[in-house]
């Protein structure tokens, strides 16, 4: 297993020294050796996480308290490349974390969660949500359908015949299993193929 990119940072935010030490040990067990820092207060987190830098934040839930999700959301807003793992008693509602380790998890579960978290399994899953089901040309056609263009308009825009557009649409529908324009639009938006403001209303 190779670490995906260089130039990444791991920040461990936990109030207790023993917790931080434990996490650090676990990281070396699963082979994470990167720019590593520890913080034990909220204010330090913002300093440690830099916008534009790919970073992994492992944070203990009791450090952020009840406004936790909001704080983390602001953090992700500022630093979109920051991925968050929360360790605590229960999942907070609307928490923007991509991994949650429960205090009740056993060794095996914790190990798996750490591996998933750092080796980007979740991101891979999200990206492959159906996107590779379509060819490049089909994706182009789908985008225009979701923008509300007619077959004729799509044909003109992509320099292909209307019949070709119809064939593409037939294949798109067969591959995706959705037929209506509104559902195709939802598909395009879920997969970030078009901007929300461009979508057919």
């Amino acid at each position: 297993m190779n670490f995906p990119e260089n130039n990444i940072k791991v920040i461990v935010a936990a109030s207790h020294f023993l917790t931080r030490l434990g996490i650090k040990t676990l990281l070396s067990v699963i082979g994470i050796q990167s720019d590593y820092s520890e913080v034990d207060s909220l204010e330090e987190i913002e300093l440690a996480v830099q916008p534009g830098m790919r970073s992994f934040l492992v944070i203990e839930q009791n450090m952020i308290g009840s406004p936790g999700p909001l704080l983390l959301e602001q953090l992700v807003g500022k630093c979109p490349l920051c991925k968050i793992m929360v360790i605590g008693d229960m999942v907070l509602k609307n928490c923007p974390c991509s991994q949650f380790v429960s205090n009740n998890d056993n060794q095996q579960q914790i190990l798996e969660k750490f591996q998933d978290f750092f080796f980007d399994q979740e991101n891979k899953k999200q990206k492959t949500t159906g996107q590779n089901m379509l060819s490049e040309r089909e994706t182009e056609v789908l985008k225009e359908v979701a923008r509300g263009l007619s077959n004729k308009e799509i044909a003109d825009k992509l320099y292909i015949s209307t019949n070709t557009v119809i064939t593409h649409r037939k294949n798109i529908t067969e591959k995706l299993g959705v037929k209506t324009v509104s559902a195709l639009t939802v598909y395009a938006l879920i997969n970030n193929l078009i901007a929300p403001e461009d979508a057919i209303k």
Binding site: G130, L176, V178, K179, T180, A183, V186, Y187, I190
Partner: peptide
Amino acid sequence: TDLKNLIIKF
């Protein structure tokens, strides 16, 4: 059917 597939597949 579309709604089901959006959930199941995407």
